[in-house]
Nucleic acid binder design. Sequence first.
DNA 1: CATAAAAACGAACGTTCGTGCTATTATATT
DNA 2: AATATAATAGCACGAACGTTCGTTTTTATG
Lengths: 228, 228
Amino acid sequence: MRLFVPRLQGGVCLARGAAATERLAKGARTRESILRVAVDLASVEGLEGLTIGRLAEELKMSKSGLFAHFGSKEDLQLATVEMARQIFVERIIRPALAQPEGLPRLLGLCEGWLDHVKNRVFKGGCFFTAASFEFDSRSGPVRDAIAAAMRTWLDVLTRAIDGAQKTHHIKASIDARKFAFEIYSLAMGANWALQLLDDKDAMAKARQNILERIKGLAMPQCPPIKLK
Amino acid sequence: MRLFVPRLQGGVCLARGAAATERLAKGARTRESILRVAVDLASVEGLEGLTIGRLAEELKMSKSGLFAHFGSKEDLQLATVEMARQIFVERIIRPALAQPEGLPRLLGLCEGWLDHVKNRVFKGGCFFTAASFEFDSRSGPVRDAIAAAMRTWLDVLTRAIDGAQKTHHIKASIDARKFAFEIYSLAMGANWALQLLDDKDAMAKARQNILERIKGLAMPQCPPIKLK
DNA sequence: CATAAAAACGAACGTTCGTGCTATTATATT
DNA sequence: AATATAATAGCACGAACGTTCGTTTTTATG
């Protein structure tokens, strides 16, 4: 039923040339710090388990003061997904895309993903994997946002594989999308083994597994792939 | 804080030789029908999202009447996990283990798992995959029960692969546990693609993918593996 | 059929949920 | 420094949460 919400969105009011987090109006800065905590909380408790009271407590704010930054709980969830997406782009995708097209970029994506789980970029493992399985039987804007982010991620991975084929690093005969799906399945499996089964070597094993698989597709022009 | 809970567990009071669902005391029968609904509800809304009020409404029972079958919400969650485990064993594991050791049993497990998602044995896709990612950052008996069930599942899969190696259907050179993990990762990926991305062909594609992979390990003595 | 036991109910408990007001601070702008 | 605006706090709301209790209805047993 939410009413007004006259607030401006993050990033819009950047003084030009200033660093991203500086020079923001107070409101936008607070909003951002709320969302950074929200992302971690949601990666552990889930996006439904993320409650406004708990979030306010964590930030030592009043419920109402915090709530005023969002029009509804759904808006908070959407903003949290969006913040997680930005962090993911910044920490995984951007560094990988800085690598030259071909094998380096592909490896950058794979290892970046595995590292972000191991290094706890999100407190509870991969935010989007958790959110995927939480919302995959629901409908509505939150589920749509999660699905859209995941489609984009698969697209990025697919394009990187395609690029590695174009540069003749790996065989052109395989289907890039299918291979992207395989790689990501193994990555999700590793996240699952680490988080649920406490398999401390899960990420290393997955890395080796994925590299072996890529190596099996390598062509003569392919730069060396170092395992272990 | 829960107090008494003097109720007997399902299965204990079976008249010997009688069919499983017959000959149960009224209480145990009700308890079972509650749990069957609980499993479906939890597979959609999550084990935390499974609320006693919602469950009572679904069953047209009073909250208190339903609650009396369990000592606490945690007990309800544990019982729900246990019921899901029983259904999973009955519908996927048992039929596969009825197959002769070797390739048939291994294929039975793989295809049984994929089918149980496609055929909606659980309303919201695989119960345990959803539960895994919901509880993988928590602690306590519920998480432990989920983890134990998943370890058992991986063990069953691993033993089936080992069996297929012993019968010389597939190469003995590969690591059975690693291969089990790969297969299950692809299966989880398929569940993810079907449920979140609405990829209607996800299960068929995963089936083909897994069969191809097994075929790649086939030995001369191996019975034919039919793709498509 | 009477009677004891088990199962289900209705009402209420204290909490927490999301949300809506109004008042009070803090920040920007003139 | 005065003033307008944005941000936060305080308080309250109805609903739903898990849980407890005493009572009533149903089932099983002698």
